[in-house]
Design a protein around this nucleic acid. Structure first.
Length: 243
DNA sequence: AGTCATGTTGACGA
DNA sequence: CTCGTCAACATGAC
């Protein structure tokens, strides 16, 4: 559920409610839920892993974390975190972080940091990377202020695709290779989106959860890397370590 | 059936 | 104050 492309899919499934009025709002989210009733859903935006339900004067920020789910026009056996009922159907959200952003949503987000946004600015990301020369690339790719929307699967697939070892030190990676990483973060995110929509995402994984390297047949390594200690799957034969 | 994970925040202690 | 570690959240895949 949680990586950027999945949030775009969620948005697509909810757009039918844009322009419609919330009839009833319910759930155990720690926000002022009655406030939503009789308000028109003005727009739905995303920023990386954030799903943004925009109303006049405020925005509901949904973050699905690891376990979050949602249902459209149906419910599931779980405690409802936030449910919005419209005349034509409903959005039901479970196990997510729900917050209210007051005022203009644009003041909260740098849209150019989101790898899936039209406004994505690769040069800006590379500049931010150059300010963190000591950070390992496996950590840098997960920095939401630099690569908003990139999660652990995308991290592993991107680094495998561009032949870079996850424990490479950012400042030691040649500029053109860093540029490839940033470019691939966006390209793979859209591949992820397409494959997830087709239901073939896992089938297309080259590195994530793999035990054997598809390129050289040697065993893949699985380590919890970086200060973030997230799983990395990599081939030490095919992926170069820059240190 | 137990383990682990596509994520983030906050508390606490060193 | 900063850093590291842990707990919390609480579901579904294997």
């Amino acid at each position: 559920m949680p990586e950027g492309p999945s949030i775009l899919i969620a948005k697509a499934q909810m757009t039918e409610f844009i322009g419609h009025k919330v009839i009833t709002a319910a759930g155990n989210a720690k926000i002022d839920i009655p406030r939503l009733e009789n308000k028109k859903l003005e727009d739905i935006k995303t920023w990386g892993k954030h799903l943004l339900l925009c109303f006049d004067g405020f925005t509901i920020r949904i973050h699905f974390l690891l376990f979050g789910t949602y249902r459209i026009n149906e419910t599931k056996e779980a405690k409802l975190r936030l449910g919005l009922t419209f005349a034509t159907g409903a959005i039901n959200i479970y196990t997510a972080s729900v917050k209210v952003l007051e005022g203009n949503v644009n003041s909260y987000y740098d849209w150019s940091a989101d790898v899936m946004q039209e406004e994505w600015d690769e040069k800006s990301a590379l500049k931010k990377l150059s300010n963190k020369p000591n950070m390992l690339i496996c950590d840098a790719l997960l920095e939401q202020d630099i690569f908003s929307g990139v999660g652990n699967i995308i991290k592993n697939e991107v680094l495998y695709r561009v032949y870079v070892h996850p424990e490479s030190i950012t400042g030691q990676i040649p500029p053109d290779k860093l540029r490839q990483i940033a470019e691939e973060a966006r390209v793979y995110s859209f591949d992820f989106l397409r494959w997830k929509n087709e239901g073939t995402l896992k089938k297309h994984w080259l590195a994530h959860t793999k035990k054997i390297c598809k390129r050289c047949d040697l065993p893949m390594h699985k380590h919890y890397t970086g200060t973030k200690k997230r799983r990395s799957f990599f081939c030490t034969n095919c992926q170069k370590l820059y240190i």
